[in-house]
Design a protein around this nucleic acid. Structure first.
Lengths: 218, 218
DNA sequence: TAATTCCATGAACGATCATTCATAGAATGA
DNA sequence: TCATTCTATGAATGATCGTTCATGGAATTA
Protein backbone atom coordinates (compact mmCIF):
# COMPACT_ATOMS: atom_id res chain seq x y z
CA UNK A 1 0.00 0.00 0.00
CA UNK A 2 1.61 3.20 -1.16
CA UNK A 3 1.78 5.87 1.52
CA UNK A 4 0.70 8.44 -1.01
CA UNK A 5 -0.60 7.89 -4.49
CA UNK A 6 1.97 9.14 -7.01
CA UNK A 7 0.33 12.22 -8.44
CA UNK A 8 1.58 12.89 -11.94
CA UNK A 9 3.45 16.12 -12.53
CA UNK A 10 1.04 18.53 -14.21
CA UNK A 11 2.04 19.61 -17.68
CA UNK A 12 0.40 23.02 -17.59
CA UNK A 13 2.85 25.59 -16.29
CA UNK A 14 0.65 27.28 -13.69
CA UNK A 15 -0.40 23.93 -12.24
CA UNK A 16 3.15 22.63 -12.26
CA UNK A 17 4.28 25.62 -10.25
CA UNK A 18 1.80 24.86 -7.47
CA UNK A 19 2.65 21.18 -7.65
CA UNK A 20 6.39 21.71 -7.28
CA UNK A 21 6.06 24.29 -4.54
CA UNK A 22 3.85 21.95 -2.56
CA UNK A 23 6.20 19.07 -3.17
CA UNK A 24 9.14 21.07 -1.80
CA UNK A 25 7.16 22.17 1.24
CA UNK A 26 6.15 18.60 2.02
CA UNK A 27 9.73 17.44 1.55
CA UNK A 28 10.91 20.17 3.90
CA UNK A 29 8.47 19.14 6.64
CA UNK A 30 9.62 15.55 6.36
CA UNK A 31 13.28 16.55 6.36
CA UNK A 32 12.86 18.84 9.37
CA UNK A 33 11.06 16.13 11.31
CA UNK A 34 13.79 13.63 10.56
CA UNK A 35 16.93 15.75 10.77
CA UNK A 36 15.97 18.98 12.48
CA UNK A 37 15.82 22.44 10.98
CA UNK A 38 19.59 22.70 10.72
CA UNK A 39 19.73 19.33 8.99
CA UNK A 40 17.76 20.63 6.04
CA UNK A 41 20.10 21.37 3.16
CA UNK A 42 19.19 22.07 -0.43
CA UNK A 43 20.70 18.73 -1.38
CA UNK A 44 18.55 16.95 1.17
CA UNK A 45 15.46 18.74 -0.05
CA UNK A 46 16.28 17.54 -3.55
CA UNK A 47 16.67 14.02 -2.23
CA UNK A 48 13.39 14.06 -0.27
CA UNK A 49 11.38 15.70 -3.03
CA UNK A 50 12.93 13.81 -5.92
CA UNK A 51 13.55 17.12 -7.66
CA UNK A 52 16.71 18.82 -8.80
CA UNK A 53 18.80 20.94 -6.47
CA UNK A 54 18.07 24.10 -8.40
CA UNK A 55 14.33 23.88 -7.73
CA UNK A 56 14.50 25.47 -4.30
CA UNK A 57 16.05 28.65 -5.66
CA UNK A 58 13.85 28.58 -8.75
CA UNK A 59 10.57 28.37 -6.87
CA UNK A 60 11.43 30.13 -3.61
CA UNK A 61 14.42 32.25 -4.61
CA UNK A 62 16.23 31.50 -1.38
CA UNK A 63 16.17 28.62 1.02
CA UNK A 64 15.03 30.66 3.98
CA UNK A 65 12.07 31.89 1.98
CA UNK A 66 11.02 28.28 1.46
CA UNK A 67 11.35 27.68 5.19
CA UNK A 68 9.21 30.69 5.90
CA UNK A 69 6.56 29.32 3.56
CA UNK A 70 6.79 26.00 5.35
CA UNK A 71 6.11 27.68 8.66
CA UNK A 72 3.17 29.56 7.21
CA UNK A 73 1.86 26.30 5.78
CA UNK A 74 2.14 24.61 9.17
CA UNK A 75 0.46 27.50 10.96
CA UNK A 76 -2.38 27.61 8.44
CA UNK A 77 -2.90 23.86 8.52
CA UNK A 78 -2.96 23.79 12.30
CA UNK A 79 -5.38 26.66 12.47
CA UNK A 80 -7.68 25.08 9.90
CA UNK A 81 -7.50 21.81 11.81
CA UNK A 82 -8.54 23.12 15.21
CA UNK A 83 -11.11 25.41 13.70
CA UNK A 84 -12.63 22.46 11.94
CA UNK A 85 -12.73 20.55 15.21
CA UNK A 86 -14.33 23.59 16.82
CA UNK A 87 -16.99 23.79 14.14
CA UNK A 88 -18.06 20.23 14.87
CA UNK A 89 -18.49 20.89 18.59
CA UNK A 90 -21.74 21.79 20.29
CA UNK A 91 -22.49 25.42 20.90
CA UNK A 92 -21.56 25.42 24.58
CA UNK A 93 -18.29 26.87 25.89
CA UNK A 94 -17.37 23.69 27.77
CA UNK A 95 -17.93 21.46 24.75
CA UNK A 96 -16.03 23.87 22.54
CA UNK A 97 -13.07 24.14 24.89
CA UNK A 98 -12.92 20.42 25.22
CA UNK A 99 -13.03 20.05 21.45
CA UNK A 100 -9.93 22.22 21.22
CA UNK A 101 -8.10 20.27 23.89
CA UNK A 102 -9.16 16.92 22.52
CA UNK A 103 -8.03 17.99 19.07
CA UNK A 104 -4.53 18.67 20.34
CA UNK A 105 -4.37 15.59 22.51
CA UNK A 106 -5.47 13.17 19.83
CA UNK A 107 -3.50 14.36 16.83
CA UNK A 108 -2.97 11.39 14.57
CA UNK A 109 0.40 9.77 14.06
CA UNK A 110 0.06 11.17 10.58
CA UNK A 111 0.68 14.62 12.04
CA UNK A 112 3.88 13.69 13.85
CA UNK A 113 6.11 15.28 11.24
CA UNK A 114 4.11 18.47 11.22
CA UNK A 115 4.21 18.77 14.99
CA UNK A 116 7.92 18.12 15.23
CA UNK A 117 8.60 20.56 12.42
CA UNK A 118 6.45 23.12 14.15
CA UNK A 119 8.40 22.73 17.38
CA UNK A 120 11.63 23.12 15.44
CA UNK A 121 10.43 26.46 14.11
CA UNK A 122 9.30 27.50 17.53
CA UNK A 123 12.75 26.81 18.92
CA UNK A 124 14.36 28.64 16.01
CA UNK A 125 12.08 31.61 16.64
CA UNK A 126 13.92 32.23 19.90
CA UNK A 127 17.03 33.33 18.01
CA UNK A 128 15.48 34.19 14.64
CA UNK A 129 13.00 37.06 15.01
CA UNK A 130 11.58 36.44 11.53
CA UNK A 131 9.79 33.34 12.77
CA UNK A 132 8.49 34.85 15.97
CA UNK A 133 5.15 36.34 14.88
CA UNK A 134 4.07 33.03 13.39
CA UNK A 135 5.19 31.04 16.44
CA UNK A 136 4.11 33.13 19.38
CA UNK A 137 1.39 31.17 21.12
CA UNK A 138 0.25 34.21 23.04
CA UNK A 139 -0.64 36.10 19.89
CA UNK A 140 -2.25 33.25 18.02
CA UNK A 141 -5.94 32.95 17.24
CA UNK A 142 -5.88 29.74 19.24
CA UNK A 143 -4.97 31.52 22.44
CA UNK A 144 -7.62 34.14 21.80
CA UNK A 145 -10.23 31.45 21.33
CA UNK A 146 -9.19 29.68 24.50
CA UNK A 147 -9.39 32.96 26.38
CA UNK A 148 -12.89 33.77 25.20
CA UNK A 149 -14.09 30.27 26.03
CA UNK A 150 -12.54 30.50 29.47
CA UNK A 151 -14.22 33.87 29.96
CA UNK A 152 -17.59 32.34 29.13
CA UNK A 153 -17.01 29.44 31.51
CA UNK A 154 -15.86 31.71 34.32
CA UNK A 155 -18.91 33.89 33.93
CA UNK A 156 -21.24 30.92 33.74
CA UNK A 157 -19.69 28.99 36.60
CA UNK A 158 -18.76 31.91 38.84
CA UNK A 159 -15.19 30.62 39.20
CA UNK A 160 -12.66 32.62 41.17
CA UNK A 161 -9.97 32.69 38.50
CA UNK A 162 -8.77 35.25 36.01
CA UNK A 163 -9.31 34.61 32.32
CA UNK A 164 -5.64 35.06 31.54
CA UNK A 165 -4.59 32.61 34.23
CA UNK A 166 -7.00 29.93 33.07
CA UNK A 167 -6.09 30.34 29.42
CA UNK A 168 -2.35 30.33 30.13
CA UNK A 169 -2.69 27.21 32.24
CA UNK A 170 -4.41 25.34 29.44
CA UNK A 171 -1.96 26.43 26.74
CA UNK A 172 1.05 25.71 28.94
CA UNK A 173 -0.34 22.26 29.57
CA UNK A 174 -0.87 21.58 25.89
CA UNK A 175 2.56 22.88 24.91
CA UNK A 176 4.21 20.84 27.62
CA UNK A 177 2.31 17.86 26.28
CA UNK A 178 3.63 18.51 22.78
CA UNK A 179 7.16 18.80 24.05
CA UNK A 180 6.88 15.50 25.88
CA UNK A 181 5.25 13.90 22.88
CA UNK A 182 7.84 15.10 20.44
CA UNK A 183 10.72 13.46 22.26
CA UNK A 184 9.17 10.05 21.74
CA UNK A 185 6.02 9.91 19.60
CA UNK A 186 5.93 6.12 19.96
CA UNK A 187 5.67 6.30 23.71
CA UNK A 188 2.89 8.83 23.72
CA UNK A 189 -0.61 7.59 24.45
CA UNK A 190 -3.50 9.92 23.67
CA UNK A 191 -5.46 8.46 26.56
CA UNK A 192 -2.77 9.54 28.97
CA UNK A 193 -2.61 13.10 27.67
CA UNK A 194 -6.38 13.25 27.61
CA UNK A 195 -6.64 12.33 31.28
CA UNK A 196 -4.06 14.92 32.28
CA UNK A 197 -5.92 17.68 30.45
CA UNK A 198 -9.34 16.51 31.55
CA UNK A 199 -8.18 16.42 35.15
CA UNK A 200 -6.83 19.94 34.90
CA UNK A 201 -10.09 21.23 33.41
CA UNK A 202 -12.16 19.35 35.97
CA UNK A 203 -10.07 20.91 38.72
CA UNK A 204 -10.33 24.51 37.61
CA UNK A 205 -13.84 24.33 36.07
CA UNK A 206 -15.52 21.65 38.25
CA UNK A 207 -19.09 22.63 37.37
CA UNK A 208 -18.35 22.08 33.68
CA UNK A 209 -15.78 19.30 33.66
CA UNK A 210 -16.17 17.64 37.05
CA UNK A 211 -17.57 14.19 37.67
CA UNK A 212 -21.17 15.31 37.45
CA UNK A 213 -20.57 17.02 34.11
CA UNK A 214 -18.68 14.01 32.78
CA UNK A 215 -21.53 11.65 33.70
CA UNK A 216 -23.94 13.96 31.90
CA UNK A 217 -21.80 13.70 28.76
CA UNK A 218 -22.44 9.99 28.57
CA UNK B 1 30.34 47.23 36.78
CA UNK B 2 31.93 44.23 35.05
CA UNK B 3 29.50 41.42 34.36
CA UNK B 4 32.12 38.95 35.47
CA UNK B 5 35.45 39.63 37.10
CA UNK B 6 38.24 38.73 34.69
CA UNK B 7 39.81 35.66 36.23
CA UNK B 8 43.43 35.32 35.25
CA UNK B 9 44.41 32.29 33.25
CA UNK B 10 46.10 29.85 35.65
CA UNK B 11 49.71 29.10 34.85
CA UNK B 12 49.75 25.59 36.26
CA UNK B 13 48.85 23.10 33.56
CA UNK B 14 46.21 21.09 35.42
CA UNK B 15 44.43 24.22 36.55
CA UNK B 16 44.64 25.78 33.11
CA UNK B 17 42.96 22.73 31.64
CA UNK B 18 39.93 23.12 33.91
CA UNK B 19 39.91 26.86 33.29
CA UNK B 20 39.88 26.55 29.52
CA UNK B 21 37.32 23.78 29.46
CA UNK B 22 35.01 25.81 31.62
CA UNK B 23 35.59 28.89 29.50
CA UNK B 24 34.61 27.00 26.36
CA UNK B 25 31.51 25.56 28.00
CA UNK B 26 30.39 29.00 29.15
CA UNK B 27 31.06 30.43 25.71
CA UNK B 28 29.03 27.62 24.17
CA UNK B 29 26.03 28.30 26.42
CA UNK B 30 26.14 31.97 25.52
CA UNK B 31 26.51 31.23 21.82
CA UNK B 32 23.66 28.72 21.84
CA UNK B 33 21.38 31.17 23.63
CA UNK B 34 22.17 33.89 21.13
CA UNK B 35 22.38 31.97 17.86
CA UNK B 36 20.83 28.59 18.47
CA UNK B 37 22.56 25.22 18.54
CA UNK B 38 23.14 25.23 14.80
CA UNK B 39 24.64 28.72 15.02
CA UNK B 40 27.51 27.48 17.15
CA UNK B 41 30.62 27.08 15.01
CA UNK B 42 34.17 26.57 16.16
CA UNK B 43 34.97 30.06 14.94
CA UNK B 44 32.14 31.52 16.98
CA UNK B 45 33.23 29.61 20.05
CA UNK B 46 36.68 31.11 19.62
CA UNK B 47 35.16 34.55 19.34
CA UNK B 48 32.94 34.15 22.41
CA UNK B 49 35.64 32.57 24.56
CA UNK B 50 38.50 34.74 23.36
CA UNK B 51 40.54 31.61 22.71
CA UNK B 52 42.06 30.19 19.57
CA UNK B 53 40.06 28.08 17.17
CA UNK B 54 42.14 25.00 17.87
CA UNK B 55 41.16 24.94 21.54
CA UNK B 56 37.88 23.14 20.98
CA UNK B 57 39.59 20.16 19.38
CA UNK B 58 42.48 20.30 21.84
CA UNK B 59 40.30 20.15 24.95
CA UNK B 60 37.26 18.25 23.70
CA UNK B 61 38.66 16.40 20.70
CA UNK B 62 35.54 17.05 18.64
CA UNK B 63 32.95 19.77 18.66
CA UNK B 64 30.05 17.45 19.40
CA UNK B 65 31.89 16.16 22.47
CA UNK B 66 32.05 19.72 23.75
CA UNK B 67 28.33 20.10 23.14
CA UNK B 68 27.67 16.90 25.02
CA UNK B 69 29.67 18.24 27.95
CA UNK B 70 27.66 21.45 27.77
CA UNK B 71 24.45 19.49 28.05
CA UNK B 72 25.80 17.52 30.99
CA UNK B 73 26.86 20.76 32.61
CA UNK B 74 23.39 22.23 32.16
CA UNK B 75 21.68 19.12 33.48
CA UNK B 76 23.97 18.97 36.51
CA UNK B 77 23.57 22.66 37.26
CA UNK B 78 19.79 22.46 37.01
CA UNK B 79 19.62 19.42 39.21
CA UNK B 80 21.87 20.99 41.82
CA UNK B 81 19.76 24.13 41.71
CA UNK B 82 16.38 22.52 42.34
CA UNK B 83 17.82 20.14 44.88
CA UNK B 84 19.24 23.09 46.76
CA UNK B 85 15.82 24.74 46.66
CA UNK B 86 14.31 21.51 47.92
CA UNK B 87 16.76 21.29 50.79
CA UNK B 88 15.68 24.70 52.04
CA UNK B 89 12.01 23.75 52.07
CA UNK B 90 10.10 22.52 55.10
CA UNK B 91 9.71 18.80 55.54
CA UNK B 92 6.13 18.60 54.28
CA UNK B 93 5.21 17.33 50.81
CA UNK B 94 3.17 20.43 49.96
CA UNK B 95 5.96 22.81 50.92
CA UNK B 96 8.51 20.71 49.08
CA UNK B 97 6.43 20.50 45.92
CA UNK B 98 5.84 24.20 45.98
CA UNK B 99 9.55 24.81 46.46
CA UNK B 100 10.20 22.89 43.24
CA UNK B 101 7.57 24.79 41.31
CA UNK B 102 8.58 28.14 42.73
CA UNK B 103 12.18 27.40 41.85
CA UNK B 104 11.27 26.88 38.21
CA UNK B 105 8.90 29.81 38.06
CA UNK B 106 11.29 32.32 39.54
CA UNK B 107 14.52 31.50 37.75
CA UNK B 108 16.57 34.65 37.61
CA UNK B 109 17.24 36.53 34.42
CA UNK B 110 20.80 35.35 34.98
CA UNK B 111 19.67 31.89 34.02
CA UNK B 112 18.08 32.89 30.74
CA UNK B 113 20.98 31.66 28.64
CA UNK B 114 21.07 28.35 30.43
CA UNK B 115 17.34 27.80 29.98
CA UNK B 116 17.38 28.69 26.30
CA UNK B 117 20.42 26.50 25.71
CA UNK B 118 18.68 23.68 27.54
CA UNK B 119 15.62 24.00 25.34
CA UNK B 120 17.85 23.97 22.27
CA UNK B 121 19.31 20.64 23.37
CA UNK B 122 15.88 19.31 24.11
CA UNK B 123 14.75 20.14 20.61
CA UNK B 124 17.90 18.63 19.15
CA UNK B 125 17.30 15.47 21.16
CA UNK B 126 14.27 14.76 18.99
CA UNK B 127 16.47 14.01 16.00
CA UNK B 128 19.76 13.28 17.78
CA UNK B 129 19.40 10.22 20.03
CA UNK B 130 22.69 10.98 21.78
CA UNK B 131 21.09 13.85 23.67
CA UNK B 132 17.91 12.04 24.56
CA UNK B 133 18.81 10.39 27.88
CA UNK B 134 19.97 13.71 29.32
CA UNK B 135 16.88 15.56 28.05
CA UNK B 136 14.02 13.21 28.72
CA UNK B 137 11.94 14.83 31.41
CA UNK B 138 10.15 11.59 32.16
CA UNK B 139 13.34 9.86 33.20
CA UNK B 140 14.86 12.70 35.16
CA UNK B 141 15.30 12.77 38.90
CA UNK B 142 13.09 15.85 38.89
CA UNK B 143 10.12 13.93 37.58
CA UNK B 144 10.71 11.17 40.09
CA UNK B 145 10.76 13.67 42.92
CA UNK B 146 7.57 15.30 41.72
CA UNK B 147 5.92 11.89 41.51
CA UNK B 148 6.86 10.90 45.04
CA UNK B 149 5.68 14.24 46.39
CA UNK B 150 2.40 13.88 44.53
CA UNK B 151 2.02 10.39 45.92
CA UNK B 152 2.45 11.71 49.44
CA UNK B 153 -0.09 14.47 48.87
CA UNK B 154 -2.61 12.11 47.31
CA UNK B 155 -2.32 9.73 50.21
CA UNK B 156 -2.53 12.52 52.76
CA UNK B 157 -5.41 14.36 51.10
CA UNK B 158 -7.34 11.39 49.78
CA UNK B 159 -7.49 12.89 46.30
CA UNK B 160 -9.08 10.96 43.46
CA UNK B 161 -6.20 11.29 41.03
CA UNK B 162 -3.42 8.99 39.89
CA UNK B 163 0.14 9.85 40.80
CA UNK B 164 1.26 9.73 37.18
CA UNK B 165 -1.51 12.06 36.07
CA UNK B 166 -0.76 14.62 38.76
CA UNK B 167 2.97 14.54 38.14
CA UNK B 168 2.59 14.78 34.38
CA UNK B 169 0.24 17.72 34.73
CA UNK B 170 2.75 19.63 36.82
CA UNK B 171 5.70 18.90 34.57
CA UNK B 172 3.72 19.71 31.42
CA UNK B 173 2.72 23.00 32.97
CA UNK B 174 6.28 23.88 33.87
CA UNK B 175 7.64 22.91 30.47
CA UNK B 176 4.95 24.89 28.71
CA UNK B 177 5.89 27.79 30.93
CA UNK B 178 9.54 27.47 29.88
CA UNK B 179 8.59 27.37 26.25
CA UNK B 180 6.50 30.50 26.57
CA UNK B 181 9.23 32.17 28.58
CA UNK B 182 11.97 31.34 26.13
CA UNK B 183 10.27 33.06 23.21
CA UNK B 184 10.41 36.37 25.02
CA UNK B 185 12.26 36.43 28.36
CA UNK B 186 11.62 40.17 28.66
CA UNK B 187 7.88 39.70 28.58
CA UNK B 188 7.82 36.98 31.19
CA UNK B 189 6.70 37.92 34.68
CA UNK B 190 7.42 35.43 37.46
CA UNK B 191 4.26 36.56 39.26
CA UNK B 192 2.17 35.50 36.29
CA UNK B 193 3.74 32.06 36.01
CA UNK B 194 3.50 31.64 39.75
CA UNK B 195 -0.25 32.29 39.75
CA UNK B 196 -0.83 29.83 36.92
CA UNK B 197 1.04 27.07 38.74
CA UNK B 198 -0.44 27.91 42.12
CA UNK B 199 -3.93 27.85 40.65
CA UNK B 200 -3.31 24.45 39.12
CA UNK B 201 -2.00 23.03 42.37
CA UNK B 202 -4.88 24.57 44.33
CA UNK B 203 -7.29 22.99 41.90
CA UNK B 204 -5.95 19.44 42.02
CA UNK B 205 -4.74 19.48 45.65
CA UNK B 206 -7.24 21.85 47.30
CA UNK B 207 -6.60 20.67 50.84
CA UNK B 208 -2.91 21.53 50.53
CA UNK B 209 -2.88 24.49 48.15
CA UNK B 210 -6.42 25.85 48.34
CA UNK B 211 -7.42 29.14 49.92
CA UNK B 212 -7.43 27.75 53.43
CA UNK B 213 -3.95 26.33 53.01
CA UNK B 214 -2.70 29.54 51.47
CA UNK B 215 -4.04 31.60 54.36
CA UNK B 216 -2.29 29.25 56.75
CA UNK B 217 1.00 29.90 54.95
CA UNK B 218 0.83 33.55 55.90
C1' DT C 1 69.74 26.05 35.03
C1' DA C 2 69.23 22.94 31.23
C1' DA C 3 66.63 19.43 29.01
C1' DT C 4 62.31 17.86 28.12
C1' DT C 5 57.51 17.63 27.65
C1' DC C 6 53.38 19.53 26.70
C1' DC C 7 50.23 23.14 25.27
C1' DA C 8 48.26 27.03 22.46
C1' DT C 9 48.08 28.84 18.01
C1' DG C 10 46.22 29.68 13.35
C1' DA C 11 47.15 28.35 8.58
C1' DA C 12 45.90 24.54 5.55
C1' DC C 13 42.71 20.86 4.01
C1' DG C 14 38.79 18.52 2.23
C1' DA C 15 33.87 18.44 2.65
C1' DT C 16 29.61 20.66 2.36
C1' DC C 17 26.88 24.66 2.27
C1' DA C 18 23.60 28.10 -0.53
C1' DT C 19 23.48 30.22 -4.69
C1' DT C 20 24.34 31.26 -9.68
C1' DC C 21 23.93 30.31 -14.36
C1' DA C 22 24.58 28.17 -19.08
C1' DT C 23 22.04 24.88 -21.42
C1' DA C 24 18.60 21.71 -23.15
C1' DG C 25 13.94 20.90 -23.68
C1' DA C 26 9.09 21.53 -22.99
C1' DA C 27 4.98 24.50 -22.86
C1' DT C 28 2.93 28.38 -24.99
C1' DG C 29 0.98 31.58 -28.46
C1' DA C 30 0.76 33.12 -33.27
C1' DT D 1 3.35 24.29 -37.39
C1' DC D 2 6.93 27.27 -36.00
C1' DA D 3 8.94 30.88 -33.27
C1' DT D 4 9.18 32.29 -28.74
C1' DT D 5 9.19 32.09 -23.86
C1' DC D 6 9.77 29.89 -19.82
C1' DT D 7 11.21 25.92 -16.91
C1' DA D 8 14.08 22.18 -15.05
C1' DT D 9 18.65 20.71 -14.57
C1' DG D 10 23.18 20.02 -12.36
C1' DA D 11 27.93 21.67 -12.82
C1' DA D 12 30.57 25.62 -11.13
C1' DT D 13 31.52 29.15 -7.52
C1' DG D 14 32.88 31.17 -3.33
C1' DA D 15 32.06 30.94 1.56
C1' DT D 16 32.17 28.43 5.72
C1' DC D 17 32.24 24.26 8.12
C1' DG D 18 35.04 20.80 11.42
C1' DT D 19 39.37 18.92 11.81
C1' DT D 20 44.45 18.32 11.34
C1' DC D 21 48.99 19.57 12.20
C1' DA D 22 53.60 22.05 12.06
C1' DT D 23 55.50 25.43 14.93
C1' DG D 24 56.90 28.46 18.75
C1' DG D 25 56.82 29.02 23.49
C1' DA D 26 55.68 28.09 28.17
C1' DA D 27 55.45 24.86 32.01
C1' DT D 28 57.57 21.02 34.01
C1' DT D 29 61.22 17.96 35.50
C1' DA D 30 65.98 16.61 36.45
Amino acid sequence: MPAQEPVARPRRRDEAKIYFRRKLIDAAIEAIARHGLSGVSVSRLAEYSGLARGMVNLHFDRKDRLLHEVLKHLADAYRASWQEALSRAADEPAARLWALVEHDVARKAHDDSALIAWLAFRQEAITNPAYRPLCDTRESAFFGTVKSLCAALIKDGGYDIKVETAALGITFLLEGLWLDWSLDPQRYRPASGRVVCRTHLAAIFPRHFGKAARAADG
